[in-house]
Design a protein around this nucleic acid. Structure first.
Length: 593
RNA sequence: GGUCGCAUAGCUCAGUUGGAUAGAGCACCUGCCUUCUAAGCAGGCGGUCCUAGGUUCGAAUCCUAGUGCGAUCACCA
C-alpha cells in the first residue's frame, strides 16, 4: 500500500471518529516548497460532509493523524491545506524496497484481455516522411506504455496496398523506368517507387495543360488526361486479377516494404503482425451483406449501400459503392473483424491515425457497435495533430516533405557536431561514436515529438534545428550517462545490497525518493490517457531533481561509507528509472556522452 | 453553413478529478569547472491563462456566447 492509500484510510477514520461522518474521497497534492511538510491534504472538499471552519477541521484531522499514525511526524494548517510531515523512515523503507529492481515501474500482465495497437499504416507508393514519424513514435510508445501498465499488446499496421495511387507509380515505372530496380540504382525501394509517383504527377500535369491549350476546361482535362485513364485501366486489370499487373504490383510493393523495413529499423520500432487492405476488404463486404440483413445498413435504388447515422447525430455514410466495390470504410470494418478472429484474446484496439480522420473513426466505431460486436466499445482513436512546415502542409507530389531517413541522418549529424565541440570521447572507436551520435540524434527527435500533447499541431522548422539543451532528450541522456560514470567508479552491487536502517536525509535525497515513488502511477495514467507526454514530462522532472542533487551533494565524497553507499544506490535507482521511462518512449540511453 | 479540435511568458510547451503567489525550457542578463562529465547547477528578467458573461468558499481548468487558427462534412484513402 502506498502513502496516499494509507493516509486516506486514516483520514476517513479521523472524520468518522471526530465528526461521525463518512468521507468518500481524500484529495492529496504535493506540498509546495514554501511550506513545511511532505504531502498535503486539501480540507475544502471535506466541507461538503463536515460543516465548519476548514482551518479548525484541518487542525483536528492533523492532530488525529499525529496521534494515530506512526509515519506522521508533524503537521501544519495553512488556510484549507493540511501539510503533513512524513518520517524519513517511511521514505527509506520505500527506497529499500525498490532499489536494484531492473523492472521498476513495469507491471506484470494482469489482464486476460489484450490490446491491439495499430500505427504507421502507410500507402505503398512513397517513402515515409515526418508525418509518419510522429505517427510511428506515438503508436510505438503508447503500445509500450500499455504493456508496461500490465496488458498484453499486439503491435500492428494496416497497409494500404491497393488503389489508384499504386497504379500511378506502377504505370510511370513501366513507361519511364527502363527496368530500373533498387539493386541497379542503389536506391531504397520506397525511394525508387516514390520517384515514379512524382514522375507520374509531372507527366499528368503536362498532359492537363496540353488539353487545356486545346480548349478543354481544367476540370474536364483533369479527368481526361491519357495517363490517368491508363492508370484507371490498370486498376481495373488489377481487380480482375490480370497476371502481368498483379506481378508488377507484387514486385513494386515488395521494394517498398523492404525500404520501409530499413526505416523502421532505423527509427527503432517494430510490429508483431501486419494486415493488408487487399486481404481484408472482401471480409468487409461480407459483413456489409450481413448488416443489410439485420437492417443496420440500407440499399439505395442504384445499389449502393449506406448506414444511416442521423439518429446518432451523424450523417448517412456509404459502405459500398453502387458498382459493388469497397470503400475505405468497408475495408476498415473487415480489418477490425479479421483482427479479432486472428487474435481472440484482443479486447480492444487503439488506432494511431491523424486527426483529419476523427470523423471517419467516430463512424467506424459506431457501425461496429451497431453490427453487435461487444469489443467495439473498447476502440480508441489515438488522434494526433498534423506536423506542418513553415511553408504549410507537406505534399509528397510536390516534393515539400521532410523525408524520414534524411531527418534521422541530419539529427545524428547535429549530434556529431555538438559532440565534437565538447570533445569528451577521444578514446571511442569510430563505430562506437557513430552509434552514439545516432542514439543522441534520435533521442532528441523522439523526445521533441513525444513530449507534446498528441492533440496539438506541430510546426516543424527544419532550419531551426531541434535543441539539445534544456527540456530535451539529450539532456536526459546526459544525466543518465553521468550516473553511469559514477557507478563505474563505485562498487555498485555492494552498495545496493547495503541495508540502511537509519538515515538523516538531505532535502535533495528525499525529493528524489518522492519523485521515484510517483513513477508507477505515472505509467498507469499515461496508459489510461494514451499519452507518452506524461512519461516524458515525468522523466524531465526526475532528471532535474537528480541534477540538482548531483551539483549540491557529493556522492562519492560523502562523509561516511553509509551515506556514500546510500547515495550510490539512489543514483543507480534513478538511472534505472530513467532507462525504464525512456524505454517505453522508445529512446535509448548511452553509457557515456 | 453544420460538426470536431486547439488558443497559457518574445518563442516551444507543462499545468492531475476545479485548490495555496500559474510552472519549465529556449532567448536575454549574473554567478559557478583545482572535488563525482558545465549537453550541467544557482539566480535574474518576462503573464489581460483569446474575449465577455455564468456556476463556486475557490476557475487557466466546468457551463454559455463570441473571436482566431486547423480539420472534417466525397460512390478519395
Amino acid at each position: 500500500m502506498n502513502l496516499q492509500q494509507t493516509l486516506k484510510l486514516h483520514v476517513k477514520a479521523a472524520i468518522k471518529v471526530l465528526f461521525q461522518s463518512e468521507l468518500e474521497s481524500v484529495e492529496f497534492q504535493a506540498t509546495r516548497k514554501e511550506f513545511a511538510g511532505d504531502i498535503t491534504i486539501v480540507v475544502f472538499p471535506m466541507l461538503r460532509v463536515v460543516k465548519g471552519n476548514p482551518v479548525v477541521i484541518g487542525e483536528q484531522v492533523g492532530q488525529y493523524l499525529l496521534d494515530n499514525v506512526d509515519l506522521v511526524l508533524g503537521f501544519n494548517v495553512v488556510k484549507g491545506f493540511l501539510n503533513i510531515e512524513i518520517s524519513d523512515s517511511y521514505y527509506l523503507d520505500f527506497f529499500q524496497s525498490i532499489k536494484g529492481e531492473t523492472n521498476y515501474g513495469f507491471s506484470e500482465v494482469n489482464d486476460e484481455k489484450a490490446v491491439m495497437v495499430e500505427y504507421s499504416s502507410p500507402n505503398t507508393n512513397k517513402p515515409l516522411h515526418l508525418g509518419h514519424v510522429r505517427n510511428v513514435l506515438l503508436g510505438y510508445s503508447v503500445a509500450e506504455i500499455i504493456k508496461a501498465s500490465g496488458k498484453k499488446v499486439y503491435k500492428t499496421q494496416i497497409i494500404n496496398d491497393r488503389g489508384i495511387h499504386i497504379c500511378k507509380s506502377m504505370l510511370a515505372w513501366q513507361r519511364f523506368g527502363n527496368g530500373e530496380t533498387p539493386e541497379s540504382t542503389g536506391l531504397k525501394g520506397d525511394k525508387l517507387v516514390g520517384n515514379y509517383y512524382v514522375k507520374f504527377d509531372q507527366v499528368y500535369k503536362v498532359e492537363i495543360s496540353e488539353l487545356v491549350a486545346q480548349g478543354q476546361s481544367e476540370d474536364v482535362a483533369k479527368k481526361n488526361a491519357p495517363i490517368l485513364l491508363e492508370a484507371q485501366e490498370m486498376l481495373r486489370k488489377w481487380e480482375a486479377g490480370d497476371n502481368e499487373v498483379v506481378s508488377l504490383w507484387k514486385k513494386m510493393n515488395q521494394w517498398v516494404y523492404d525500404g520501409f523495413d530499413v526505416t523502421y529499423k532505423n527509427i527503432g520500432v517494430d510490429f508483431d503482425t501486419y494486415y493488408y487492405e487487399s486481404d481484408t476488404y472482401l471480409l468487409g463486404k461480407e459483413f456489409v451483406a450481413e448488416g443489410l440483413k439485420t437492417k443496420v445498413f440500407e440499399e439505395d435504388t442504384d445499389g449502393s449501400v449506406w448506414c444511416d447515422l442521423t439518429e446518432d447525430g451523424l450523417d448517412r455514410k456509404i459502405v459500398l459503392r453502387s458498382d459493388g466495390t469497397a470503400v475505405y470504410m468497408t475495408q476498415d470494418i473487415g480489418t477490425a473483424i479479421q483482427r479479432i478472429k486472428d487474435y481472440p484474446d484482443v479486447g480492444g484496439m487503439v488506432y494511431t491515425v491523424g486527426n483529419e480522420q476523427d470523423y471517419h473513426f467516430k463512424v467506424l466505431f459506431l457501425i461496429l457497435k451497431k453490427l453487435g460486436f461487444d469489443w467495439a466499445k473498447n476502440l480508441f482513436h489515438l488522434s494526433y495533430g498534423m506536423v506542418d512546415l513553415p511553408s504549410g502542409k507537406m505534399k509528397s507530389r510536390e516534393g515539400t516533405v521532410v523525408d524520414a531517413d534524411d531527418l534521422i541522418k541530419e539529427m545524428a549529424d547535429t549530434a556529431e557536431e555538438i559532440s565534437k565541440e565538447l570533445g569528451k570521447l577521444e578514446d571511442y572507436s569510430e563505430a562506437e561514436k557513430k552509434e552514439l551520435y545516432k542514439t543522441i540524434g534520435l533521442g532528441a527527435l523522439k523526445y521533441y515529438i513525444l513530449k507534446v500533447d498528441p492533440k496539438k499541431r506541430i510546426l516543424f522548422d527544419p532550419k531551426e534545428s531541434i535543441d539539445f539543451q534544456g527540456n530535451t532528450g539529450p539532456f536526459i541522456q546526459y544525466t543518465y550517462a553521468r550516473i553511469q560514470s559514477i557507478l563505474r567508479k563505485a562498487d555498485v552491487k555492494e552498495y545496493i545490497a547495503l541495508n540502511v536502517v537509519e538515515m538523516q536525509f538531505h532535502d535533495k535525497e528525499k525529493q528524489l525518493i518522492k519523485q521515484l515513488e510517483n513513477f508507477p502511477e505515472v505509467i498507469q495514467s499515461a496508459a489510461d490517457q494514451h499519452s507518452p507526454a506524461l512519461i516524458a514530462n515525468y522523466t524531465y522532472d526526475l532528471v532535474k531533481d537528480f541534477n540538482s542533487f548531483y551539483q549540491n551533494v557529493s556522492i562519492l565524497g560523502a562523509d561516511s561509507d553509509l551515506e556514500k553507499g546510500f547515495r550510490v544506490a539512489l543514483s543507480q535507482t534513478v538511472g534505472q528509472t530513467i532507462k525504464n521511462a525512456f524505454k517505453i518512449l522508445g529512446i535509448e540511453v548511452p553509457e557515456r556522452m
